[in-house]
Design a protein around this nucleic acid. Sequence first.
DNA 1: TTGTACGCGTTATCAG
DNA 2: CTGATAACGCGTACAA
Lengths: 342, 342
Amino acid sequence: MTSSVRQARPPQPTLEMVAEVAGVSRATVSRVVNGSTKVRPGIVASVTAAIDELNYVPNRAARSLASRQTQALALVVPEDMTRFFGDPYFAAVVQGITRRLDQSDYTLNLLVASSDPLHKTLRYLRSGNVDGALIISHHTGDDFVAELQATMPVVFGGRPSAADDLEAYFVDVDNAAGAERGTQRLIDIGRRRIGSISGAIDMPAGIDRVTGFQRTLDRVGMPTDAVEYADFTVVGAAAATRRLLERCPDIDGIFVASDLMATGAVAVLQELGRSVPGDIAIVGFDDSPAATSGPIPLTTVHQPSNEMGYAMADTLLRRLAGDEQVPHRTIMPTHLVLRDSA
Amino acid sequence: MTSSVRQARPPQPTLEMVAEVAGVSRATVSRVVNGSTKVRPGIVASVTAAIDELNYVPNRAARSLASRQTQALALVVPEDMTRFFGDPYFAAVVQGITRRLDQSDYTLNLLVASSDPLHKTLRYLRSGNVDGALIISHHTGDDFVAELQATMPVVFGGRPSAADDLEAYFVDVDNAAGAERGTQRLIDIGRRRIGSISGAIDMPAGIDRVTGFQRTLDRVGMPTDAVEYADFTVVGAAAATRRLLERCPDIDGIFVASDLMATGAVAVLQELGRSVPGDIAIVGFDDSPAATSGPIPLTTVHQPSNEMGYAMADTLLRRLAGDEQVPHRTIMPTHLVLRDSA
DNA sequence: TTGTACGCGTTATCAG
DNA sequence: CTGATAACGCGTACAA
């Protein structure tokens, strides 16, 4: 009793079918669907009725083929799934983006992929699936960006690396200034030997935060050598913390380039019997949920991740709408949030 | 100096253009692109060359309009962004899904939306954007499911609620049996007054785990009244834990329906000065990263979340390929993982 | 093996 | 205000 015609699903109603039911032409139905004001009210009513009756939904493929628009955007995240899901920073950005998009007709396509399937991702984007792209967590080596920018409007979360086009649109905070705030806090509470766990140095955010850290120490004549490089992950930060303590056992304050990494640092410190902030004070960055999820609430440099996501989406939407006044760079404010770790 | 023709992007090359460059017909180019074996090698070479030269990528809209296929799948998650990003269980499932999809030509569209924009999501799906859908974290009230199933192949992660079609395809674990394992552990280590923090009771997984919990206690004649209902979130679990302790101060063991919730329970217990597992033993569910992220490594019921995602994608792909032998239900094994909390 | 011609469901440009 | 009709880019019988 096997039916090999299982795929006999009721075909979706088409514009043509609606037109027939409503007794008008396809063109008129199209007008009603697209909210044209130039249709007689009576006609609108009958067409609407027909649409409801048939439960009609416009076919996207046909629509975008004809209109050359998809009403969809992509969020490209050149990272592993684990990093993407592991860092609450991303969650905040995505939330901000969707918060803006929910007010529009655009839908979001989330593309999380590191090196390997990146080619596949690029093909996907180039095959006309979206009208524009948002890119976050962009690494210096990611050369696909240039090609993508030539194809469609792109907005970055975080300043793109120097090699890229100066015409690029992006939303960011002043990472160096934020790092200065965080480092200064450690100085202010009397720490004399201050180190840092950096983020990925192939990312502008990673570089700029180290710069801000060192600049602050330079200004007061403190040594800037106590930097260990990590990669914005918990395990990377844990290893870096171990290296740092080994190299500079007298450390009494650490500026960590992200809250998530700071949780890793704190864990190592506790394991090694160093109290926080007693022996070693910690300042993080982001003010993400990670700052308050660990055993010690983290003093941290707040950046408005959610709002940054919102601003990114807003910038892209405005460009798509043809707005020529959209600023290329949107720099948002940071501030220090005092909690227990420093 | 404002150029109002900013959108003057180079138009994507088309099949037709490739055909002209290669000196063949569009049909032949189409064959080459789609890997037909019935094209003379020489022709294939020249067409391939033309494709590379023009950097041609097929237009998805046109292709799916003609072929009536999109080569895209949707993962529908009827939850808030915060819940989705907050529970590592989802990360594992998504990873499993993409692991399977990376071996195929299909791309994934992630649709995370709770009640409000769910209508928007349904429209999106029905407008022919995807060939099939994966649904996880499905609540009893979500009636959109029925409508969706009539439109395209659907595979569930977690048994769909009873009201749904018995023909449904799904991947799940035996939640009740898993809960029995976890509860039995508490009995085995000598706990005499055992309670539970349940998951959302509008979800089969939530219901089944309570059932397993109570069944185990019934079997040994212990009271089954110490259940407080939560919703698979940390804050929900924390509140439920407080209620539970208030109502049953003599509790010495708790089966918590997810690791994430267990972290919330442990936090409350510590705050209240109850040691874990000394005063109160805890058994979680999932064996997600949440089980080892807190201060106390959690004894928990392992479910193969990643593999379940893989199996879901595999099931859907096979159905899409016309495989009639695909089993409707795939039940995967659980086992107890012993750590420190019980 | 290759080319011709039609259709996929919409939008957009014209007449009327 | 409404209705033909031509694109949009590609797949695919069918013919050659």
